[in-house]
Design a protein around this nucleic acid. Structure first.
Lengths: 200, 200
DNA sequence: GTCTATAACCAGATAGAC
DNA sequence: GTCTATCTGGTTATAGAC
């Protein structure tokens, strides 16, 4: 692997583990083994390296979300994505960036994060709409809201798990929302009887 | 106000805004106007000051959660606490700490965060149990899980809102989970017909 | 592309006078 | 309790040789 890629990968790891503000160029050099000269040759500033690493980390995340768009019954896909194995104590490499003071204040660094979440949201909304169309979910639920809810359960689950240093709250949170989704299966088929969320 | 309290309050603000790792003793001195000598007189290290500020921030949070324990119909209390006005773009002053690398690694600093969340969880569980007992929520739902879910929706909602620099996702997430809770009202009264979550 | 040397500045204190 | 001076080491580069 060339040093450029090595730097990006290493910075990506460190940003996942420690965020951006608290990761120094020296940390990157020491873990990657790449020298000072090479580093500043490829990336004039720490921020330039961070941006490349961020795009890389974001790209890691999106394939998984496409599981939501896959074949099969919509609710089964939703459940599969929700319950996919995740390291609760490490947290989300994209979501973490929103809590880094120097990323939060920097529109350029925040942009890839915003884009990634927007894209995942689209996949969630699509799957939820399909679940409603398939009669697996009540049609008076708002897929846009629900998509935010499900993303928030995962992102917030990490917060709870890290606070307790225990994956339990993360698993509890997703089990809980899954039970709610199941409880929200239509008791009667989705017909003309419920129009709360329709736009004429 | 004496300088000790001024230091704690200022550090509390800064930790909410920028976290712990990226807040320097100098930042605290400049914002508070307290001098170097006073600062190190009251708090031998940055960490000591942070611990005091953290306990202060945690204490700010708990009175609100006691709204869950108040009088009135359980579901009404749940909805009120969930929908309480919050600054989505600032985030949670306690939850944020879980993403700070230097807090996360330090059991002493993490402890107040863990305690606060545990306490809020207890309040949630109690309110949810009462909602079930009152027939406002299906009795095949697990209050422990659901409590984690609702806390995660709030914590994760902040993450989504900050990513988009827009409170919309935060509000969407809580609207979505509230709709799910309403959809999980019992269709028939809670009787002997459902025992999934009972421990004999 | 990669190396070593240098440097301005900040973090996080410590020391001792008042 | 508060002040100013001082210190060690890390951050984030820049400069120029190889």
């Amino acid at each position: 692997m060339d040093s450029r890629q090595l730097l990006v990968d290493t910075m990506g790891e460190l940003m996942w583990e420690r965020g951006y503000a608290d990761t120094s160029p020296r940390n990157v050099r020491e873990r990657s083994g790449v020298g000072q000269g090479s580093m500043y040759h490829h990336f004039p500033t720490k921020r330039d390296l961070a941006l490349a690493a961020l795009e890389r980390n974001v790209a890691d995340l999106l394939p998984a979300a496409s599981e939501l768009d896959g074949p099969g019954a919509p609710m089964a896909r939703i459940e599969a994505y929700l319950m996919r194995p995740r390291d609760a104590l490490k947290g989300c490499k994209v979501g973490r960036m929103t809590q880094d003071p120097q990323v939060r204040e920097d529109p350029v660094l925040l942009a890839p994060v915003a884009r990634a979440f927007a894209q995942v949201h689209v996949s969630w909304v699509k799957a939820l709409r399909e679940a409603i169309a398939a009669g697996e979910l009540r049609d008076d639920l708002d897929p846009e809201h629900l998509a935010h809810t499900l993303m928030a359960v995962l992102q917030g689950g990490y917060v709870l798990a890290i606070a307790q240093q225990d994956p339990g709250p993360f698993d509890g949170a997703r089990a809980g929302v899954l039970d709610l989704l199941r409880a929200a299966a239509p008791s009667v088929p989705n017909h003309e009887n419920n129009r709360r969320n329709r736009t004429p």
